[in-house]
């Protein structure tokens, strides 16, 4: 058990949880890199299906009504993404570099980045609930046919099954994992701030019992090391050549008509507001 958790003793001699074992950090790093290598090898060696350009040409010819550039992420949504990414990288660096041997005064940078992340997530929840298509990012039983089709396509089969709506299934599953892990790390982290000196509120290390604090520290640590693996996977997919168009959309805000038709189901992601279309510079 010491490989996963560390224990201490309370002043009354009771055994209490203190942290996750930092062996798990190295395990998460290893798992992230192993996944990366396995996936990259599979993509090089496998017979996963690639759509023939002629098919996409035909689809594009059939939809001349669509603009050349399809808006995918609003400026606000992109700003949120990059603020969240910066705060997440700051959080992971300040949390794990000292464990890896790079020593610096990390605590105040960590909690400040945590507050930025929390604020950005709160903003995102409100923004997505009010101004975006809230349900487009979630997964549920309705996505099982798409999951089956995606798996078969990855295995080299030519299946006519459903294509994704606005977000590919992988994106939505990743988002779900991030919601679970992110909310765990935020809830535990905000509570743990009561134990350190901040200008926001008085310290109160006795707010919770030793065992509850231990549970929170372990939750925070588990979620933290899980985020290491998740961030490795995210960055890996963001820089993969066949996914680069998605990353580019998170920078520029739009995708091309060809990418829209090639990767998405126009019935599940309807480009509804022609007024919001980004004009094609070639026609300006």
């Amino acid at each position: 058990m010491d490989y996963f958790l560390t224990w201490g003793h309370s002043p009354w001699g009771q055994q209490i949880l203190t942290h996750v074992s930092w062996n798990l950090l190295w395990a998460a790093l290893f798992a992230g890199v192993a996944f990366l290598v396995a996936h990259a090898s599979y993509m090089v060696l496998s017979a996963h299906r690639k759509r023939h350009p002629a098919e996409t040409d035909a689809m594009e010819a059939a939809r001349p009504d669509l603009p050349a550039r399809i808006p995918r992420h609003s400026g606000v949504a992109r700003a949120f993404h990059w603020v969240m990414a910066a705060s997440m990288l700051t959080l992971l660096s300040t949390a794990f570099l000292p464990i890896a041997g790079v020593k610096f005064a990390w605590v105040q940078w960590h909690w400040m980045a945590g507050l930025v992340l929390t604020t950005s997530i709160l903003f995102h929840v409100i923004h997505a609930s009010v101004w975006l298509d809230f349900w487009s990012i979630w997964v549920g039983p309705k996505d099982i046919p798409e999951l089956r089709a995606e798996i078969l396509r990855e295995l080299g089969h030519d299946v006519p099954g459903p294509k994704p709506g606005k977000y590919p299934l992988g994106n939505r599953l990743y988002h779900l994992a991030l919601v679970v892990v992110g909310l765990s790390v935020i809830a535990s982290g905000l509570t743990m701030m009561v134990r350190v000196r901040t200008p926001l509120f008085p310290r109160n290390p006795y707010l919770l019992s030793d065992s509850t604090w231990g549970f929170l520290y372990v939750t925070h640590g588990m979620a933290g090391v899980a985020l290491v693996g998740l961030v490795i996977a995210h960055v890996y997919f963001a820089v993969r050549p066949e996914k680069w168009w998605i990353t580019k959309a998170m920078i520029l805000g739009w995708i091309t008509r060809r990418q829209y038709l090639e990767h998405h189901d126009p019935d599940r992601w309807v480009v509804a507001d022609p007024g919001s279309r980004i004009p094609d510079p070639a026609q300006q």
């Binding site: 560390t6 201490g8 309370s10 002043p11 209490i16 134990r195 604090w213």
Partner: peptide
């Protein structure tokens, strides 16, 4: 006791 300096969390 398992304080911060001893590797604990308080």
């Amino acid at each position: 006791w398992s304080c911060y300096r001893a590797g604990g969390n308080i």
